[in-house]
Amino acid sequence: MKVSIGYEVVDGPWGGGNAFVKAMTSWLRERGHLVVNNLQDNDIDIIMIIDPRSHLPGYTYSAFEVMRYQTKINPKVVVVHRINECDERKNTKWMNFWLRAANYVSDHTLFIADWLRDLKIWHPNDGRPSDTVFNGGDTTVFYPRSNSKRQFGSSLRLVTHHWGGNWMKGFDVYQKIDQMLDDPEWRNRIDFTYIGNLPHGFEFKNVQVRPPLSGNRLGEALCEYDGYITASICEPGGMHHVEAGLSGLPLLYRNSGALPEYCQGYGQIFNGVDDFEVALTNYLENWEQHKAAMNAYPWTLDRMCKGYMEVIERLYSQREQIARKRHTFRNPLYLLAVAFLHVFARMYDFRRNILGGV
């Protein structure tokens, strides 16, 4: 098969979407499939939209260009839309609109969590099916190292890591930990390190901060710690807790978004700032049991890629039926939305590339 994924991989620490494309591309190519990141060939079998914001760095085509390809160049192509974002994640007001518009041109929708699917930021009512395939991490990069053994009697070393510095990544709780560390009692029981970018103007007093890391450097760094916390609000799936879980770190996770789907059974849940100290106390008391459970943490890269491949192969076998059932012009309002966002993206690119700013 020839698969087009609408993103050009960036080297270095660049978020979960970049990690997904890099992993999926390698996995497909290792199994003999052709992978491109454009729509220049007329024999593409599968188009995968992974983000509708074609004006952002790395993204190589818009939903409008996908629609044009499937109507004018190759009507048998199957369009898969992977949804891993939402407005709820960062308290924005426009992301779901972008997603709905892109989803209009898709034949099949893939979600990274059931929580995200249930938000209804897609089009289930016009007959298009969907699947949920959980994210997975690379076990050749994220696995327990020899330096992951906790020394008896030492304070428990907590860590988290985020590429984005949005406040909703959990900084209300991370700030709470910073304040707790003013208390000598907590300072003797835990320490906390944040790896990644901080919100603009935000500083910690008692928390160690390290720059963003990726790949083997991140895998090695995570194993310097004993436990992992994620306080992200409305997290649609993410990779940070997966990478930590595969590295053998028991998870202290917020009851929000898709985190319970990924973390249940592998640590301690909490609701927010108000119950965090109680949850942390329980986590410390049961750390040994949580640590033992991490050997069975299931969300691996191989499992994820097999899940995508099962869907892609099924859709490929049904491509002629899918093409016959497709009705591109069924809703003029969404057609206008798809066209409008394409024009917006091109204007944005023009201002950035020609005029030198936005």
Rank of each mutant, 00 (worst) to 15 (best):
T193R: 07
V133D: 14
E220S: 15
E30A: 00
A279C: 03
D51E: 10
M309W: 10
R303C: 05
E313F: 11
Q289I: 07
K306F: 04
L218P: 00
N166C: 09
Y334M: 12
N42T: 11
R187H: 09
H108Q: 13
Y316A: 12
A345Y: 08
S4Q: 13
V173Y: 03
A258C: 03
K205Y: 06
K22P: 07
V3D: 07
A221G: 08
D41M: 04
R352L: 13
R352A: 13
K72L: 14
T230I: 08
C263N: 00
T139Q: 11
F192C: 05
G32H: 08
G32T: 05
E313Q: 10
Y266Q: 01
K2H: 11
A345W: 09
D41V: 00
V9A: 08
F111T: 06
V273K: 12
G245F: 02
D274S: 13
R187L: 05
K72N: 05
Q268F: 02
R254Y: 02
N147V: 15
P298D: 11
Q151C: 05
D131F: 05
N135K: 09
V242A: 00
R157D: 02
H241Y: 11
D182T: 03
N282A: 10
Y194C: 07
N255E: 12
G165V: 15
V141I: 14
V207K: 11
Y174N: 11
N125Y: 13
D183P: 05
D349P: 04
Y308I: 13
Q151I: 09
D191P: 00
D349A: 09
W94G: 01
A296W: 08
E310H: 03
E8T: 14
D87C: 03
A296N: 15
K2C: 06
R254W: 08
L156N: 03
L28S: 02
Y7W: 15
E288W: 02
D118H: 14
H342N: 06
E313D: 13
G265F: 03
S155D: 05
A113N: 00
F270M: 02
L56Q: 15
I121T: 04
D172M: 03
I229R: 10
V358K: 15
A337D: 04
E85D: 13
N331R: 03
P52C: 04
E285Y: 12
F20T: 04
F152A: 09
G267C: 06
H241T: 02
L28Y: 08
F344E: 04
T132E: 08
V343C: 10
D191C: 02
Y143E: 09
L333T: 12
Y262L: 09
F350G: 01
L246V: 06
